[in-house]
Amino acid sequence: MSDETESPTYVDEGKEFTRDTNYIPDRITRDSEEWPVEPGRYRLIAAPACPWANRALIVHRLLGLEDVISVGRPGPTHDARSWTFDRDPGGVDPVLGIERLQEAYFARFPGYERGITVPAIVEVATGKVVTNDFPWITHDLATEWTEHHRPGAPDLWPADLREEMDEVMQRVFTEVNNGVYRCGFAGSQEAYEAAYDRLWTALDWLEERLTDRRFLMGDRITEADVRLFTTLARFDAVYHGHFKCNRQKLTELPALWGYARDLFQTPGFGETIDFEQIKAHYYVVHTDINPTGIVPVGPDPAVWEKPHGREALGGETIAPW
């Protein structure tokens, strides 16, 4: 393992960026003998700075699982070893009693050699990581923990939309969620330009799709919206400049910008966004892209509170609870 001061490296010179998608495949389900649904047994570790973890924070909040699964929030910066709990008193997670998320991974898999990623779910009693498979984490929170959802919680995986949702979410993941990283971590001009073209082809498709429908799947919020939102929330603050995704700003795309503000102003979404932590994560951790470590001051987050006008499209939004 690297020492405590070493920075992680993301750009592989001369190559295109390829995401490692091999995660701990375990799931928490109603009928699992090893990892059953059980209130109080697990802790969700999700750094607000990370878009993949941000998904879990939104879903956890929308479903009202605060008293069922506790949440630990690592700080926005980390080295090659692990995310740390540097914003908690004494730099220690108050429930798990650890300084680094790495400790939970090692408790179950000594010398774990893959990435120490968030979100992760940890069993509180043993301090062992259960899973870091982020697509399944949010899926299972929505479908396996239904007995513990708050009254009026949204159905984020409606049965009548699942087939189309799978297609939409797959394109959003490969071309947008991961597409911005493919631009930012490209190791050659050729790889960058190919990634840039793919990203903007997908964003143009989304702009058109959202022109006459309020949400990605029509008139109600689903997990597809959660997955797209976390990338849009970071677009102007990080991806436009830091990752060179700079054909246009989000604020220059009428449908996507209105849609993003609509979600931001919906309970459960904007309250999970911390622009200060988001910028600190990308601009400080990615030293191979931003070696000075200087964090930009803007953009002004107040623009997210401006009227979006999407009510004219109808649809069902989520009321405060």
Rank of each mutant, 00 (worst) to 15 (best):
F185I: 13
T231K: 09
H281M: 15
P296E: 13
E33G: 11
G91P: 00
L250I: 06
W304L: 11
P135T: 02
N290A: 12
R73I: 02
V95N: 07
G187N: 04
P74Q: 09
L161I: 00
A107M: 08
W145P: 12
A153S: 14
P51E: 15
I273E: 08
P39E: 05
G91D: 01
T231E: 05
R114I: 06
L65A: 00
Y259V: 14
P158E: 03
D288N: 02
I294Q: 10
P94V: 03
P135L: 14
F243K: 09
I24Q: 07
F134I: 13
R61C: 15
D3T: 14
S2F: 13
E103V: 15
F243P: 11
V122P: 00
R310V: 12
R114W: 01
E167Q: 12
P154A: 03
P8K: 05
V92I: 15
P135H: 05
L263Y: 10
D12G: 00
G184L: 07
L263D: 12
A191C: 10
E38Y: 06
V59E: 01
F17P: 00
E316Y: 04
G218V: 03
L253E: 07
F134K: 04
A233F: 00
R73Y: 11
R87F: 01
G115L: 12
L253R: 11
L65P: 03
A202D: 03
L63P: 05
P296W: 06
T77D: 02
G241Q: 05
R30G: 06
D20K: 09
E208D: 15
P89V: 07
R261W: 04
Q277A: 08
I24N: 04
T211S: 14
D204S: 12
L228T: 02
A191H: 09
V284P: 15
R30E: 11
R182P: 03
C50A: 05
C183P: 02
L65M: 12
E163C: 00
L63D: 09
F185R: 02
R310K: 14
T84V: 03
Y192G: 02
Y239Q: 06
E167L: 14
R209W: 08
E208L: 09
E305M: 11
E252G: 12
E123R: 04
T117E: 09
T126S: 13
R209H: 14
A312N: 12
R41V: 09
Y283T: 10
G293H: 10
E193G: 06
T5D: 08
D133N: 11
P151V: 07
V71F: 11
W257M: 02
L199Q: 04
I69W: 08
A186G: 00
G184C: 10
V130P: 14
L250H: 06
Y283M: 08
A255C: 14
R27F: 01
P25R: 14
D88K: 15
G293I: 12
T287A: 14
H148P: 10
T126C: 01
A125M: 09
P48R: 07
R227K: 05
Y282F: 15
V284W: 12
Q170C: 03
T266K: 07
I318N: 03
A302D: 14
T272R: 01
G64N: 04
A255M: 13
R162Y: 07
A255E: 13
V68S: 14
G97Y: 11
T126G: 08
D79Q: 04
G293E: 15
E113M: 10
P254Y: 15
